[in-house]
Design a protein around this nucleic acid. Sequence first.
DNA 1: CCTACCGATCGGTAGG
DNA 2: CCTACCGATCGGTAGG
Lengths: 195, 195
Amino acid sequence: MSPRQNLARPMESILEVATGLFSEAGYSGTTIRDIAKGVGVLPGSLYAHIETKEDLLLGIVEVGIDHFLEAAETIDRDATPSDRMRMLIRAHVEVVAENPQRTLVVFHQWRYLTGANRARILEKRARYEDIFRKIMQDGLTAGEFDSSLDPKIAVLSILGALNWTAEWYRPDGPKSAAVVSDQIATAVLSGVLTR
Amino acid sequence: MSPRQNLARPMESILEVATGLFSEAGYSGTTIRDIAKGVGVLPGSLYAHIETKEDLLLGIVEVGIDHFLEAAETIDRDATPSDRMRMLIRAHVEVVAENPQRTLVVFHQWRYLTGANRARILEKRARYEDIFRKIMQDGLTAGEFDSSLDPKIAVLSILGALNWTAEWYRPDGPKSAAVVSDQIATAVLSGVLTR
DNA sequence: CCTACCGATCGGTAGG
DNA sequence: CCTACCGATCGGTAGG
């Protein structure tokens, strides 16, 4: 990684470099010295901008999870449950596609947060997953979703498919986020069997 | 974690302790001293049994991925693609259920392997995923799977749902691996919409 | 943002 | 498996 002389916006540069390093080497595997080198300053100089290494992680994870929550809030509450689920899947994939590295940090590195930082992120994560659970319940109540499904496991399967996208989606790949999200939504909603 | 005096099988004890610590704190976040304390010996004593910290990780990850490969090989090659997919899903969930901590290490900590170690694990992982891709292709060819699906994305969605199980499945929870795997297989194969 | 540095801890080793 | 230790590196700080 070549150092960047982004002296105008030091904090932005720090967050960008840290996101890349945390996603590749993990929080514990990334040192303050690695980040400083990526930014193009000496290690001690970082502390003019950050308080601690953990605060840096918290900033990245919290901004990331907030993106998912905000995207979910744009969804039309009056649509049918299956349409809402489709829109939620699309919103999720678009957030992943916008910044897969940050998403990897959001879903894998939150474990290294401690105390109140960790609790706040877990609360937001639960809130996000509840949006899926609510739509699942509404779909079952409305008779749109298969009543033989276990709703908890169906939601966990959908979240699994979505969280996994951050591992393989490449913004410079052949498929747009819109196409990928439609294909995931179809696979999830209709299944793989021929109808 | 209380130290265990498993002096009869020191290597087994070391692997068990390391698996638990790597799954909770990550490879980089776990020190040789943490492992030694969990085993109940002094740090330097570990090196009577292991070569390096990375060899310890390699041992855990390779045994883990081998479990998935071996389970997949037991599947009846003469069954229909949809039956084979259902059996593969069940085999996967049973391996996860048998040892979720090891599975978390297999899917998240392999990144800390270097050089040839990393290459060998990635090769085995690709071989495992190819089993899913083969069944998907067979199902499309046989007309059992929906031809409007993107097969790559369908497989990635299934792998995502399955890989996610290690994050939430608890062997001491209310559902057996057989029940969970059937419910995941139903959700994946038939989708969530009412038929 | 740099110079210069702190005490703590890291993976690993020699010799027993 | 322990004693005793190595050089390297860690997150972070004081003073400029």
